[in-house]
Design a protein around this nucleic acid. Structure first.
Lengths: 232, 232, 232, 232
DNA sequence: TATGAATGAGCCTTCATTCAT
DNA sequence: GATGAATGAAGGCTCATTCAT
């Protein structure tokens, strides 16, 4: 009985994953709005109704996809931390950011999907089951970055006088902006030729960290880094 | 006759503008996808068919909106340059960026609309009439920023050894990332409390410029700022 | 202009009527639940969307059908009253009831539709536009019957000591029961042979009026079958 | 073995009854169309597939329900006859009719279900197993009423010159019409206030029997309201 | 015998766009 | 030029029923 139950559970998980694979494929190809449930079912070689045994609706399918993607990113983060051992610090941070960027852009279609969701607004009702875990995952991703920022600060590789949350937010949003630009270039062909040669995401990360790193050295003694009048 | 023609042209321009006002209002309220042409026509106090005498389709309505918005931004940019006189440089750059950010977020609904368009991909066929001018406007916006970056470099307020396009792209994409985060926070309630207190767009600009400014001082003599091994 | 507007209005009314004809045809053939909007559109030789320019939804289509049917019945009632002149009274009542029954059963499919609606419960939200007129029509139908009952009472053809509303309700519900039995016979084939020969709707009306007429004669003292106030 | 078989049979009957209880509960709550087999299975604390071991399909579930309901009504009829002893006649008829009405309206939801079925048409293929017994039950119910009508006629409490089947049909359909009106009032709020105070089902029965009873007195010579063969 | 996961046909409604007036 | 009535394609979701276990 336990054996049967185990098999059942395994099969269920496998099928759920196959559905997510199919959904990912179709979402990437068509975009979320244009993706048809029928196409997903066909791609998963399942009946249309079966999809609804695993996901409440189209939105929850996307949510499941996002959660799985985040989970995999967190696994990558975990592996990177393990590999780095105690070295940690700025170098780990760079790798985490590069890993994040890579994970996000893997196929640009995925990036597009995620960005669309962010831009579209609040598609995930926080009250919905499954949405919380997605939010928690984001917090874990952010938290991992922040922890590494703190390490780098403690090592003196990043300015310690800036609150780590602030610094992490700065890095995170800036990097996301770089990713976003990948999509803008698709949208604005005129920018494409100029920028394509100018800045890859990795270069953005390097420049970003380099810039932050130098923030560590106070310009002048006594500077408070009051940003409002920093130019002064 | 010329007078009549002039009046006609003026009336046409006014009506076109009224349509754009109506479209903006509805797009902001409902989002692009959910916005109904009928609602726009009603808001413009025009027949549904009349809309199509001024804009090929819904997409071109959005395109016209974007172009008008960009034009207004360029006007703001022009005014800022005039005010600054010859002082220019980093301070002007900061004001341009702040103006850009302000113009983009004016209502967050507008930001959402723009971001969605960027993320959604390539809705504007470059071959389409009207799209070129949009692209050109983007180039002008980018060009204004780049010119100001160059000025700042010449003044020694920003590192001169980094290609201005590269630096401008960095600033531009990073700032866009900060704007994007405004929307993410709506989407991910969990991030909201943490970040809302942490970084406004203006703060992001300050930190960003401060970081870049310090890039001006080579870490060590002889460093080329080869980014690939910058950590080295 | 007035001519154009008139034509428009006439055409609109005609088309509305054609849609109702088509809906009636399909509803009768398939029943309300099974009737498909597409079939109605096809029967009306119109696009599916056009239906929704004239009726909010499937329910309102049925409502419109009901209202039209009631209106026609009221016209029949009006004609009967005119024909009868001043004679009125019981004979007019019989004709009204027969007319009602005939109008309801014209095709048994229509009867089925109406009965289903009654039985199904409260499909018409009283707040809905159009529903009030339907309710008002029912009241007019009932009112016509009641007025005629009163006439008959004044003529001494029906018992005057029974409140006319009560008497009318009795007649009305009883007749509806007879109509309902037409459908029951379809449902219960076993009853069919027995009853089909036994009582037509007209016979039911005759027997019903005959029975009521004799109520005019006050029961005898001591009889146990007094209604609450009948003996009075 | 016989004992085991008996137990099996008993258990099967019990389970069948539990399913009917569950179905009744759900049908009343949701209506036949909206009732979901899954909800019935859940209410019966059984698997969905199990339902189909006891009833061919949803329709037969309703049929089983109707049959059981009829059977219980027949038991009530039997009890009434026993109680009445030999008195029988009109008084028994009144009680039977009241009992019938009560049994039908017990919860108005049940009445709605039955009426819907009658109105909907011929859902029960007479060839289907189980449908015959339902038809037979109806015949038994009708037969009981008819027998009692005959008794009343023989006692002189009801007009003897009207064929008992005809009289019974008249009573039966009229009473059903009164029941139907309970539902109409739900549907037509405008009638509600007028009629709710005017006629309960019991009052309808009283008035109905009173009217029929007076038919017992042959019309006078020359009266115009003779039924076709009533005088005969 | 009991189960419940899988199935897939089926359908109302919306809305961008056109075109006759 | 302006109108708005007409169009019809398109799609997410339900649920009665089956059948392998």
């Amino acid at each position: 009985m336990s054996a049967v139950a185990k098999r059942r559970e395994r099969e269920r998980a496998e099928r759920r994953d196959r559905i997510l694979d199919a959904a990912q494929q179709v979402f990437w190809r068509e975009g979320f709005e244009a993706a048809k449930m029928g196409a997903i079912a066909e791609a998963a070689q399942l009946g249309k109704g079966t999809l609804y045994l695993y996901f409440r609706d189209k939105d929850h399918l996307a949510l499941g996809l996002a959660t799985r993607h985040q989970t995999r990113l967190l696994e990558r983060f975990g592996r990177l931390r393990s590999e780095c051992g105690e070295s940690g610090g700025l170098e780990l941070l760079r790798r985490l950011l590069a890993s994040y960027a890579d994970h996000m852009q893997k196929p640009v279609e995925h990036l597009r999907m995620v960005m669309t969701r962010w831009a579209t607004g609040a598609p995930f009702d926080p009250a919905t089951e499954g949405c919380q875990s997605a939010g928690e995952n984001v917090m874990r991703i952010f938290g991992t970055l922040r922890d590494t920022v703190i390490e780098a600060q403690q090592k003196g590789e990043l300015p310690a006088h800036i609150p780590p949350e602030r610094l992490t937010t700065f890095l995170f949003s800036s990097l996301n902006g770089s990713l976003l630009m990948q999509l803008q270039m698709n949208c604005l062909a005129s920018l494409d030729e100029v920028n394509k040669k100018i800045m890859t995401t990795d270069e953005h990360i390097d420049l970003l960290l380099e810039a932050c790193r130098h923030l560590a050295r106070p310009s002048r003694v006594g500077e408070r880094y009051d940003l409002e009048d920093a130019g002064q």
